[in-house]
Amino acid sequence: MDPLFAPPAESWHPVSTKLRTLHRLLFVVWTLVIAIVVAAVVALVLQWWWLVALIVFAATVVIVWGWLWSARNQAAWGYAENAEDLWIRHGVAWRQIVAVPYGRVQYVDVAAGPLERSYGIATVSLHTASSQTSAVIPGVPADEATRLRDRLTELGKTRGSGI
Protein backbone atom coordinates (compact mmCIF):
# COMPACT_ATOMS: atom_id res chain seq x y z
CA MET A 1 0.00 0.00 0.00
CA ASP A 2 1.06 3.54 -0.74
CA PRO A 3 2.80 4.85 2.40
CA LEU A 4 1.17 8.26 1.84
CA PHE A 5 -2.26 6.75 2.47
CA ALA A 6 -1.22 4.13 4.99
CA PRO A 7 -3.42 3.91 8.09
CA PRO A 8 -2.21 5.78 11.18
CA ALA A 9 -2.78 2.67 13.33
CA GLU A 10 -2.77 -0.97 12.24
CA SER A 11 -5.48 -0.80 9.56
CA TRP A 12 -8.31 1.20 8.06
CA HIS A 13 -11.74 0.39 9.35
CA PRO A 14 -13.71 -0.37 6.14
CA VAL A 15 -17.22 0.87 5.45
CA SER A 16 -20.09 -1.53 4.84
CA THR A 17 -20.20 -3.42 1.53
CA LYS A 18 -23.84 -2.40 1.44
CA LEU A 19 -22.60 0.96 0.21
CA ARG A 20 -21.34 -0.92 -2.85
CA THR A 21 -24.70 -2.62 -3.34
CA LEU A 22 -26.50 0.69 -2.94
CA HIS A 23 -24.29 2.42 -5.52
CA ARG A 24 -24.73 -0.50 -7.94
CA LEU A 25 -28.48 -0.39 -7.56
CA LEU A 26 -28.52 3.34 -8.20
CA PHE A 27 -26.26 2.97 -11.24
CA VAL A 28 -28.36 0.21 -12.79
CA VAL A 29 -31.72 1.86 -12.11
CA TRP A 30 -30.75 5.33 -13.28
CA THR A 31 -28.86 4.16 -16.34
CA LEU A 32 -31.75 1.91 -17.36
CA VAL A 33 -34.36 4.62 -16.81
CA ILE A 34 -32.44 7.21 -18.84
CA ALA A 35 -31.42 4.74 -21.55
CA ILE A 36 -34.96 3.37 -21.96
CA VAL A 37 -36.52 6.82 -22.19
CA VAL A 38 -33.95 8.09 -24.69
CA ALA A 39 -34.03 4.88 -26.70
CA ALA A 40 -37.83 4.89 -26.81
CA VAL A 41 -37.91 8.48 -28.04
CA VAL A 42 -35.29 7.73 -30.70
CA ALA A 43 -37.07 4.54 -31.77
CA LEU A 44 -40.51 6.12 -32.01
CA VAL A 45 -39.64 9.54 -33.44
CA LEU A 46 -36.47 9.14 -35.48
CA GLN A 47 -36.48 5.39 -35.96
CA TRP A 48 -32.68 5.40 -36.19
CA TRP A 49 -32.07 1.84 -35.11
CA TRP A 50 -28.31 2.20 -35.18
CA LEU A 51 -28.65 4.99 -32.57
CA VAL A 52 -30.82 2.76 -30.41
CA ALA A 53 -28.17 0.07 -30.61
CA LEU A 54 -25.54 2.62 -29.66
CA ILE A 55 -27.58 3.73 -26.65
CA VAL A 56 -27.99 0.14 -25.49
CA PHE A 57 -24.25 -0.37 -25.87
CA ALA A 58 -23.45 2.86 -23.97
CA ALA A 59 -25.84 1.89 -21.18
CA THR A 60 -24.17 -1.51 -20.87
CA VAL A 61 -20.75 0.14 -20.68
CA VAL A 62 -21.94 2.59 -18.03
CA ILE A 63 -23.46 -0.19 -15.95
CA VAL A 64 -20.35 -2.35 -16.16
CA TRP A 65 -18.12 0.59 -15.32
CA GLY A 66 -20.41 1.64 -12.47
CA TRP A 67 -20.45 -1.94 -11.18
CA LEU A 68 -16.66 -1.97 -10.98
CA TRP A 69 -16.42 1.63 -9.72
CA SER A 70 -18.82 0.94 -6.86
CA ALA A 71 -16.59 -1.84 -5.59
CA ARG A 72 -13.40 0.21 -5.89
CA ASN A 73 -15.00 3.26 -4.34
CA GLN A 74 -16.39 1.29 -1.40
CA ALA A 75 -13.02 -0.34 -0.83
CA ALA A 76 -11.30 3.06 -0.88
CA TRP A 77 -13.37 4.43 1.99
CA GLY A 78 -11.90 3.84 5.40
CA TYR A 79 -11.57 5.45 8.78
CA ALA A 80 -9.31 4.97 11.74
CA GLU A 81 -9.82 6.06 15.30
CA ASN A 82 -6.49 7.12 16.65
CA ALA A 83 -5.82 8.02 20.27
CA GLU A 84 -6.24 11.72 19.49
CA ASP A 85 -7.82 12.11 16.07
CA LEU A 86 -10.15 10.50 13.58
CA TRP A 87 -8.67 9.80 10.16
CA ILE A 88 -10.83 9.35 7.07
CA ARG A 89 -9.53 8.29 3.67
CA HIS A 90 -11.35 7.95 0.38
CA GLY A 91 -10.99 8.18 -3.37
CA VAL A 92 -9.53 5.89 -5.98
CA ALA A 93 -7.93 8.22 -8.51
CA TRP A 94 -8.15 11.42 -6.48
CA ARG A 95 -7.22 10.22 -3.04
CA GLN A 96 -7.68 12.13 0.12
CA ILE A 97 -7.08 11.81 3.84
CA VAL A 98 -8.69 14.09 6.40
CA ALA A 99 -7.60 13.93 10.01
CA VAL A 100 -9.77 15.67 12.59
CA PRO A 101 -8.58 15.99 16.21
CA TYR A 102 -11.37 14.92 18.57
CA GLY A 103 -11.06 18.18 20.46
CA ARG A 104 -11.93 20.08 17.29
CA VAL A 105 -15.20 18.32 16.53
CA GLN A 106 -18.02 20.76 17.08
CA TYR A 107 -20.87 18.45 16.21
CA VAL A 108 -21.49 15.15 14.47
CA ASP A 109 -24.33 14.48 12.05
CA VAL A 110 -25.74 11.08 11.27
CA ALA A 111 -27.94 11.15 8.17
CA ALA A 112 -29.72 8.28 6.43
CA GLY A 113 -32.10 8.63 3.50
CA PRO A 114 -34.87 6.09 2.84
CA LEU A 115 -32.66 3.96 0.60
CA GLU A 116 -29.77 4.05 3.05
CA ARG A 117 -32.14 3.12 5.83
CA SER A 118 -33.46 0.12 3.95
CA TYR A 119 -29.87 -1.08 3.67
CA GLY A 120 -29.22 -0.32 7.33
CA ILE A 121 -26.41 2.18 6.69
CA ALA A 122 -25.91 5.86 7.44
CA THR A 123 -23.64 8.78 6.61
CA VAL A 124 -21.62 10.26 9.46
CA SER A 125 -20.28 13.79 9.00
CA LEU A 126 -17.99 15.72 11.33
CA HIS A 127 -18.07 19.48 11.58
CA THR A 128 -15.31 21.71 12.90
CA ALA A 129 -15.07 25.48 13.06
CA SER A 130 -13.64 25.34 9.53
CA SER A 131 -15.87 24.74 6.55
CA GLN A 132 -12.83 23.44 4.67
CA THR A 133 -12.95 20.31 6.79
CA SER A 134 -14.89 17.81 4.67
CA ALA A 135 -15.02 14.85 6.99
CA VAL A 136 -17.80 12.57 5.79
CA ILE A 137 -18.03 8.78 6.12
CA PRO A 138 -20.81 7.16 4.07
CA GLY A 139 -21.97 3.59 4.40
CA VAL A 140 -21.48 3.16 8.13
CA PRO A 141 -23.74 0.45 9.62
CA ALA A 142 -26.50 2.16 11.60
CA ASP A 143 -25.47 0.94 15.05
CA GLU A 144 -21.80 1.69 14.33
CA ALA A 145 -22.85 5.19 13.20
CA THR A 146 -24.62 5.80 16.50
CA ARG A 147 -21.64 4.47 18.44
CA LEU A 148 -19.29 6.69 16.42
CA ARG A 149 -21.44 9.75 16.95
CA ASP A 150 -21.71 9.18 20.70
CA ARG A 151 -18.00 8.52 21.03
CA LEU A 152 -17.00 11.56 18.98
CA THR A 153 -19.42 13.81 20.85
CA GLU A 154 -18.10 12.49 24.15
CA LEU A 155 -14.46 12.92 23.12
CA GLY A 156 -15.25 16.36 21.71
CA LYS A 157 -16.62 17.35 25.09
CA THR A 158 -13.73 16.06 27.17
CA ARG A 159 -10.90 17.18 24.86
CA GLY A 160 -12.71 20.18 23.52
CA SER A 161 -11.01 23.51 23.69
CA GLY A 162 -12.31 26.83 22.48
CA ILE A 163 -11.71 27.83 18.92
Binding site: D2, L4, F5, A93, W94, R95, Q96, I97, V98, A99, V100, P101, R104, T128, A129, S130, Q132, T133, S134, A135, S161, I163
Partner: peptide, 21 residues
Amino acid sequence: HAKTQSVAIKQGPLQRLRGVA
Protein backbone atom coordinates in the same frame (compact mmCIF):
# COMPACT_ATOMS: atom_id res chain seq x y z
CA HIS B 1 -0.53 25.09 16.08
CA ALA B 2 -3.36 25.51 18.57
CA LYS B 3 -5.61 26.90 15.83
CA THR B 4 -5.44 23.78 13.64
CA GLN B 5 -8.97 22.54 12.95
CA SER B 6 -8.10 19.57 10.78
CA VAL B 7 -5.42 18.37 8.38
CA ALA B 8 -5.90 16.94 4.89
CA ILE B 9 -3.68 15.16 2.38
CA LYS B 10 -4.77 15.11 -1.26
CA GLN B 11 -3.32 13.42 -4.32
CA GLY B 12 -4.53 13.19 -7.90
CA PRO B 13 -3.50 10.51 -10.43
CA LEU B 14 -0.85 12.69 -12.11
CA GLN B 15 0.55 13.73 -8.77
CA ARG B 16 0.85 10.05 -7.85
CA LEU B 17 2.96 9.41 -10.95
CA ARG B 18 5.26 12.24 -9.90
CA GLY B 19 5.34 11.20 -6.25
CA VAL B 20 3.93 14.46 -4.94
CA ALA B 21 0.85 15.42 -2.90
